[in-house]
Amino acid sequence: MTIPVDRLSNAAVRAFVTALNANDEDAFRLALTPAATMSDDGSDRDLAQWTEKEIFSSRGHMEVESEKDEGLTLVARYRNDTWGEMRTKWQFTVEDGKVARFDTGQA
């Protein structure tokens, strides 16, 4: 069972996932703080390079299976044209209504 994106508890996370799934780079950037950071499988990555490769040029998409920590932690089936589908965990830090950091990796 999946959670519809419009039902995600945290508004900033909801905006992030909505933009990601729509492949909308402008909306995605608006969902982030100007100095947002991220990590993948425990290693910090360059946010612009990673999102271009793993989301936008490869048509990334999340189907959220569960959320906890008031919507700041998600488990999702994530797929893109490069890697196919995998079960992933996403943890978000939100500041002033925007995502300041996200950490993702295999669940």
Rank of each mutant, 00 (worst) to 15 (best):
D69H: 10
F92P: 02
G71N: 03
M1F: 13
R101I: 00
F16M: 06
R29I: 01
L74F: 10
E85L: 03
T33S: 13
K53C: 02
N23Q: 15
G84P: 09
R77L: 15
L20H: 12
A36Y: 06
R59T: 11
V13S: 06
L72W: 05
H61R: 15
D81V: 04
V17Y: 02
I55E: 05
G60P: 02
T88L: 09
Y78Q: 06
H61V: 10
V75Y: 05
M62D: 12
M1T: 15
R14M: 07
N21E: 11
R7N: 13
M86T: 11
D40N: 14
G84V: 11
T88V: 14
M38Q: 06
T37D: 03
T33Q: 08
D96K: 11
Q49S: 13
L20E: 09
S43G: 01
D46L: 06
V94N: 01
L8M: 05
F102A: 05
A11W: 01
W50N: 06
T37M: 06
R45E: 13
M1S: 15
D81K: 13
T37S: 14
W83Q: 14
D46F: 04
R101H: 12
S39H: 04
P4D: 04
Q91K: 05
F28V: 05
S39P: 02
G105S: 01
S66D: 09
L32C: 10
F92G: 01
K68L: 06
A48I: 10
G97L: 04
T18A: 14
G60T: 03
R79F: 08
D103I: 07
K98Y: 10
G97N: 05
A36E: 04
E54I: 06
A15W: 02
F28C: 05
T93E: 13
R79G: 14
K68G: 06
E70M: 03
H61G: 03
E25T: 12
R59Q: 15
R79D: 11
E25V: 11
T37K: 12
V17P: 01
E52P: 00
R29T: 04
E67A: 01
F56P: 05
W50A: 12
A19R: 04
E63V: 11
F28R: 03
V99P: 02
N80P: 08
T88M: 14
D44S: 15
A107Y: 09
A31R: 07
